[in-house]
Design a protein around this nucleic acid. Structure first.
Length: 646
RNA sequence: GCUGGCGUAGCUCAGCGGUAGAGCAGCGGUUUCGUAAACCGCAGGUCGUCGGUUCAAAUCCGACCGCCAGCUCCA
């Protein structure tokens, strides 16, 4: 019998009979591992445990602890779900059914039938029943014609369409129970490993992600080997719901979205405005330190300006229609601040001595986002960017990029958010999406990568994520419950200087083109505050929170003292309210606890007599009595430090 | 924009062919109270809008509007 050498992740090697399977190899390592094994990585490719290995290979047994193992588990779950659907709805036609980050889905053409929640429960029960039969998943490799014949007979046009791409190749099919699917694999050894099943939702999805294609019904589900993990997952979903900025925003009266004003047009209420202004102040101060010059520009501009920039034709569909005057002049509600800033740059001849010029503006822009895209503050139609444009000479570019990256990182760290970095480059296969000379693009991408390397950023590259005028560095932040959001951006632009014929005179006396950096650490105040609300679950750090302290007199006898305390706090620049309602102290405490106010100052006879306040901290409880002046200086310190309480 | 689901009091929800309900919030009164809900009372809704079916529509049907989830898009 031929022998093969298997290399393990720790570098150790062992001989096996040729044709040994991943499952058998796992057995020789340990019983426990064999039991936990879901699939096996063979030379970096994920295989079924039952697939024979016939050549020397590097092998890693994959379990629930490995992303690839989870993926195998969920992919098999998708097949199990497909079997349940086919049993309950004969004639259903199947698109694709992959594992995703959290669980799996299957896109299904159900003909006229729309799936209901009852259907989902029925499918879920069927899945449990089928899983309990504990039948094996079997891989079979068949000639292409054979696969075509099978799906033709079954009438599954989607699978046939997929098969078109593999003409003449060997096709792998997977069988389990009464279900057969076209599939690369890999799969679990048997359905019995799938233990706890939850179908989450059903939604429409275009076949192959193309909106010209038919919309299929997509069922999302997730499965786990243990009840505990399922419960934890469901709990996380509840937690995300609890943090929903739309709910908290309404409860805390931060902002208002009403159809009476218009979809996606947020009104900032007094308390939300406090947060917004604190954020503005924070950034304004940081930018001033870094040599930015604030500018202000109007909300509309001549349409020609946006024809010059290229924004108008390119984003026509997502802009509010131009305003046409009787004279024939046309104006556009501004979708971008850049062309305005470019005009300020171009207002007079510039010397190399002036550069870099950093123009900043909290500029409000309007974009007609598709109705289905609107989402609370996260996606709106009127938004204010923390925008800036840096005009610099080419030899200043890398240093300027570095500074903007540093500013962005500083900003996110202030909020206690973990940042990861994506270099967003163009997709070479789809060049008509991008403006300008491709030589500039190559240069810009190279420079961005150099900066990222020099700064030792831990980055990944996103192909096809560039904007139409240049590559970007995008910052993805992780919030308090582990979700990632794309926020800040730094973009290098060689295109707009060309389009606007921007120039400066160099030390050589000749005209040169500047390079522009577009950057926005928050992105927009709307989106950023929406994310902050969810990140903090409405429990903002003291420097941001709309109401920092509330004074609670115990009875009317301390009302006057309460008023004095409130006034002292206000004089000290602390945002304070007085709760002199005729209610018991327990009631008031409960009320303000739910309003997430960081500090309650309870004043009774004792405090009145001694000129102190009894401090109760949100979620922490009674901290005891303290002199008012001491409390004020503690608050000042906490605000100045921008302490994070999460 | 597309597919599906949902629109009942400020909020959370019940009612699902036969005169619109509860809790919380609000307002009035009593109570003046020490660290997460005192008590009594009052008020509040053309049941998203418009049309249709019916003796009768919050309830059934249709269109529109809005919201939610997903898809597509995101300068």
């Amino acid at each position: 019998m031929k022998k093969i050498t298997i290399t393990f992740p720790d570098g150790s090697k062992q001989e096996f009979d040729s044709g040994s399977t991943g499952g058998q190899i796992a057995e020789t390592i340990s019983r426990g591992l064999a039991k936990k094994a879901l699939s096996v990585s063979v030379n970096g490719e994920v295989w079924d445990l039952a697939r024979p290995i016939t050549e020397d290979a590097t092998v890693k047994i994959l379990t629930w602890e490995n992303p690839e193992g989870k993926s195998t588990y969920w992919h098999s779950s998708a097949h199990l779900m497909a079997e349940a659907v086919e049993t309950l709805f004969p004639g259903a036609k199947f698109g694709i059914g992959p594992a995703i980050e959290n669980g799996f889905y299957y896109d299904i053409d159900m003909g006229e039938h729309s799936l209901t929640n009852e259907d989902l429960s029925a499918i879920e029960s069927k899945m449990v029943e089928f899983a309990n039969r504990d039948v094996p998943y079997k891989r079979e490799e068949v000639p292409w014609e054979h696969a075509v014949e099978y799906f033709t007979k079954k009438g599954d046009q989607y699978k046939l369409e997929l098969l078109d791409e593999f003409k003449g190749q060997k096709i792998s099919m997977y069988h389990h129970g009464n279900f057969t699917d076209l599939c690369y694999g890999p799969h679990l050894s048997s359905t019995g490993k799938i233990r706890f099943i939850k179908l989450m939702s059903v939604a429409g999805a275009y076949w192959r992600g193309n909106e010209k294609n038919k919309m299929l019904q997509r069922i999302y589900g997730i499965t786990f080997p243990s009840k505990q993990e399922l419960d934890e997952y469901l709990f996380r979903i509840e937690e995300a719901k609890r943090r929903d900025h739309r709910r908290i925003g309404a409860e805390m009266e931060l902002f208002l979205l009403t159809p009476k004003v218009g979809s996606g047009l947020a009104l900032w209420m007094p308390k939300g405005t406090v947060i917004r202004e604190e954020l503005e102040k924070f950034l304004r101060d940081e930018q001033r330190k870094r040599g930015y010059q604030p500018v202000v520009t109007p909300h509309i501009a001549n349409l020609e300006l946006y024809k010059t920039s290229g924004h108008y034709p390119y984003y026509k569909d997502s802009q509010f229609a131009p305003i046409t005057m009787e004279s024939g002049e046309q104006f556009l509600l501004k979708p971008m601040n850049c062309p305005h800033h470019h005009q300020i740059y171009a207002a007079r001849p510039r010397s190399y001595r002036d550069l870099p010029i950093r123009l900043s503006e909290f500029g409000t822009v309007y974009r007609y986002e598709q109705s289905g895209e609107l989402n609370g503050l996260i996606r709106v139609r009127g938004l204010t960017q923390d925008d800036a444009h840096i005009y610099c000479a080419h030899d200043q570019l890398k240093e300027e990029i570095k500074q903007t990256v540093e500013l962005t990182q500083f900003v996110f760290h202030t909020f206690g958010m973990e940042v990861s970095t994506r270099l967003s480059f163009r997709d070479n296969k789809n060049t008509e999406k991008y403006g300008g000379d491709m030589a500039f693009w190559e240069q810009a991408e190279r420079e961005i990568k150099e900066v990222a390397d020099e700064m030792k950023l831990d980055y990944f590259v996103g192909i096809g994520e560039a904007s139409f005028y240049g590559p970007k560095i995008d910052f993805m932040v992780k919030d308090a419950i582990g979700r990632t959001w794309q926020l800040g951006t730094v973009q290098v632009d060689y295109v707009m200087p060309e389009r606007f014929q921007l120039e400066y005179t160099g030390s050589d006396g000749l005209k040169h083109r500047p390079v522009i950096i577009h950057r926005a650490p928050f992105g927009s105040f709307e989106r950023f505050i929406g994310i902050l609300i969810e990140h903090y679950a409405g429990e903002f750090p003291l420097w941001l929170t709309p109401v920092q302290t509330v004074v609670l007199p115990i009875t009317d006898a301390q009302a006057e003292y309460g008023i004095k305390v409130v006034q002292d706090l206000k004089n000290a620049g602390i945002r304070t309210e007085l709760d002199d309602r005729n209610e018991k102290i327990g009631y008031k405490i409960r009320d303000w606890e739910m309003k997430k106010v960081p500090y309650m100052l309870i004043v009774g006879e004792k405090e009145k007599a001694s000129g102190t306040v009894s401090v109760r901290q949100h979620k922490k409880g009674d901290l005891g009595g303290i002199a008012l002046e001491t409390f004020i200086s503690q608050i000042h310190e906490e605000v100045a430090n921008k302490s994070i309480t999460v």
